[in-house]
């Protein structure tokens, strides 16, 4: 068990070292969320298109675009695994005395690590743009946990998809095809109660909505009523995707 955790940690360490060696990706991926928060939100605010009590629209969508951004980061991990297969890196991992589930968990949590770094940058920039973040260490730690869990779940989902598609070409378009609909069919940029009924139904079963809701509560409103449910859904989501991805993982190299 200790050995198992050590091996997962070794994979996370690699991810941290990678980020330390090259941070440009973190910055380029911060551009889009900042456009949403700094340009889109103020315009919408001006015309009062979306009425939200107590907080500004900019504050409302900050957790939404943050989740969108880390979804993109995570959905990229399946592609990354295919890429590593083509390079032989994955083959080498599979020949090492490490269980398949440790490899999947290591990869998934690596997405969580990157997600945290990505979120830090976005939150800092949002704060500069005038978003008031709840400064409560416990809330922020919970938010970080939720981010890790959510990233891990999407990365595992992505690894599962990669094990079905197997080639980079087939996987390429899938990132957009999955994340954009999930983003728009969630509470990321408008409240669920403003949605038409069919979209409401989709948003309710969309795991993205729960991550957004949880982060919005922990980082912006400070109203924790929904947080237990948000965590529950996210934990179930991550457990299911990791179990499935562990089963299918080795198919990538066949």
């Amino acid at each position: 068990m200790i050995a198992y955790i050590e091996k997962v940690l070794a994979m996370l360490e690699v991810e941290v070292r990678r980020i330390m060696h090259d941070r440009t990706e973190l910055y380029t991926r911060a551009v889009q969320p900042i456009l949403w928060i700094g340009v889109f939100a103020p315009v919408m605010e001006k015309f009062r298109v979306v009425p939200i009590p107590n907080i500004t629209y900019m504050e409302f969508i900050t957790p939404g675009v943050l989740v969108q951004s880390i979804t993109f980061v995570s959905i990229f991990y399946g592609l990354n695994v295919i890429w590593e297969r083509d390079l032989g890196v994955l083959n080498k991992l599979l020949v090492a005395p490490v269980s398949r589930s440790a490899l999947v968990i290591g990869k998934a949590l690596s997405a969580g690590v990157r997600g945290i770094f990505q979120s830090l940058i976005i939150v800092l920039l949002a704060e500069i743009l005038g978003v008031r973040i709840v400064i409560n260490p416990i809330y922020l730690l919970l938010a970080a946990l939720l981010i890790v869990v959510f990233c891990a779940a999407f990365a595992a989902l992505s690894i599962f998809i990669a094990s079905l598609l197997k080639t980079r070409e087939r996987f390429m378009g899938i990132g957009q095809a999955i994340t954009m609909p999930l983003f728009f069919a969630s509470n990321a940029i408008y409240p669920i109660n403003l949605m038409p009924n069919w979209l409401k139904a989709v948003a309710t079963i969309n795991p993205l909505s729960y991550a957004v809701e949880g982060l919005r509560a922990l980082m912006i409103t400070g109203d924790l009523t929904t947080v237990p449910l948000d965590f529950l859904v996210s934990f179930v989501f991550v457990a299911v995707t990791i179990v499935i991805a562990s089963q299918t993982f080795k198919k990538i190299i066949e």
């Binding site: 070794a10 083509d86 390079l87 890196v89 991992l93 090492a96 005395p97 490490v98």
Partner: peptide, 20 residues
């Protein structure tokens, strides 16, 4: 295939596998 992790140093590559 050449399967080293090119974005890390030689030592970091070795460290990772020694832990694995």
């Amino acid at each position: 295939e050449i399967s080293v992790m090119t974005d890390l140093t030689g030592y970091e590559n070795m460290l990772f596998y020694s832990k694995l």
